[in-house]
Design a protein around this nucleic acid. Sequence first.
DNA 1: TCACTTCGTCGAAACGAATCGACGAAACGA
DNA 2: TCGTTTCGTCGATTCGTTTCGACGAAGTGA
Lengths: 351, 351
Amino acid sequence: MVTMKDVASRAGVAQSTVSYVLTGSRRISERTRLAVEEAIAELGYHPSVSARTLRSARTQVLALALPRGGDGYRPTDGRFAIEVCDAARAHGYDVLMLTEREGVPGLRRMAGGGQADGAILMAVAVDDPRVAVLRELGLPFALLGTERAPGGRGADGAEDFSGAAPFADLDWAAAVELALTAAAGAGHTGLAYLPCAAEEVAGRKGYAVRGLAGAGAAAERLAGSTRVRLLEPPAPDALYEELLALLGDPRRPTALAVQHVVGVPTVLAAAEACGLRVPEDLCVLPIGMLPGDTAGRPLPRIELPVTEMTTAVTELVVAAIAAHGAGEDPGAVGHRLIRPALLDAQLLHAG
Amino acid sequence: MVTMKDVASRAGVAQSTVSYVLTGSRRISERTRLAVEEAIAELGYHPSVSARTLRSARTQVLALALPRGGDGYRPTDGRFAIEVCDAARAHGYDVLMLTEREGVPGLRRMAGGGQADGAILMAVAVDDPRVAVLRELGLPFALLGTERAPGGRGADGAEDFSGAAPFADLDWAAAVELALTAAAGAGHTGLAYLPCAAEEVAGRKGYAVRGLAGAGAAAERLAGSTRVRLLEPPAPDALYEELLALLGDPRRPTALAVQHVVGVPTVLAAAEACGLRVPEDLCVLPIGMLPGDTAGRPLPRIELPVTEMTTAVTELVVAAIAAHGAGEDPGAVGHRLIRPALLDAQLLHAG
DNA sequence: TCACTTCGTCGAAACGAATCGACGAAACGA
DNA sequence: TCGTTTCGTCGATTCGTTTCGACGAAGTGA
């Protein structure tokens, strides 16, 4: 292995000088810098990450807590992971994966061993226990989704997140409300909302409960003019049958907002089975699908702003790390709530 | 930070003794061990990963090279990542993510800095340049997919992989061949095969070219009895129109094997648009979808054996690391080619 | 010319754990 | 009783960096 010592002797300088060239933490003359750089290139030197970490106590690594694999896997999860990784690299960080399977002990292990400077948590639930653990461990972090229960809005219409842990998220409540309101505005008089899977609602995942809250708000707001049916959070096996019952009924809705994204193909299959054409007979409006994924046909939709969320959450955790290093409060870096955008709204038009 | 020294003085022993208790590399008396363990628990000691790594030159980390995010993202990728992570933990390894975006320089950075003991590459292409780089770097590795071009089978019917880099993969050629042969056996006389996306074929991804090879073999084998149409690898935008042309033709196939998994919803939408009912008028047979993902309706299918692949590839890379450590050839740990299984075959029956 | 900066570089001391050689004490056989 | 082995523990060194204090050589002003 090539070390700084080798580079130093090759360049005819002290080992510490090589370090200064690399870190830039002291002025070095042009002549010396060039000699060192040449020696580095000639020897193919790469600094040892573990030695650097040991001495400096900075790992340049972020831990990313992924959700569960297996049945609970959602196609969006991997896309988030990849884009978080790219965003982190742009800030000079690598990303170490943790899975739901390891849970809280995994976070403890990581923080205890000093393997990461900060953490990003995916699939955050209301009052997520991991948040308390991270605070206790003193590890800077930011969340994808918030641990706050959906709450009342302030005077300016914005939700109050003071004291909440740093996070980036789509405003799911606003998204669902926008979808339903827009459908009503386009002339649909029978609306329905299909929430996330029962397991996600039961697990109080932020996106799931906030979507429900938004649907409730929309139902209330539209109460005078339009009926909004809030469907039960579906169990995977029961979804198809429930949809058949819903869509087979003569008083069926004409527009269906679907936050249960992995259920979109099932919705389309059920519609077909009931002899309904999409979009002529039934307007299907997915919320939170991956950008570019139009489920095989053009649909009005609200996509998941993956890149915005991942760049934002990365910036937040990087800022939290900096604050932590400066002795300030890493939890005070704020949050980013992303406004939903309705795409292909012209496809909403009622039959 | 609590260090071994603190534990040692608390337990009234030498620092080295604490180390021996932890690593188990020397006999320690029961009495001393208990005292040390108690001190560890009382102080909440966690060994410093960077110090351990620096001294022992073992990181207990695997690098996982993920495919590209953005447009090229496949829902399967994230599932692989999560399950690789779980499998690695079972062997005591953590997983550091690298993305396609960083490419070969990313691997060099990782290996140069000594950040990982081994690497796993996803979405491997024929003659993948990353393989040569890893060999050059002397970093143990295993692949998800093989870099070998599909080749002739030996006398025993098994493909010859001697000299190939260690890998785990579904036998994609056998999978496609099985799908088409089974469809023919179920009475279908007009078969078609939809390969992976044009971009994947052009990029010579192993699964894409091997699937095509299997389709070619099946077409040849069935030539006497059944016509097998091999469709062109579709461009994303053109897929729907091409399917309409295919399925709108009176001489349309009655069974369609679909390896282009993200295209399954599009296939179903096109079938519906042509007034075809699935499975009565058209048998759709997806190959390589995520386990449990039945695209919203029961379909005969060959699932992606994610867990088998990830556990196997992890075992291979762990074995390669061990071999490397023992001065043996890390490339000689073999491979695992997984036989495809056809699920819900009873749904194949021709209308 | 002399005191005094400023600049660039050097040597040495950490960081926390693994590991090697050494060394006392107990156990053993003769 | 004495030498010899075995067992358990200790001290010291090492891994490759970062970083601090120090120190000559130039540069500055009087």
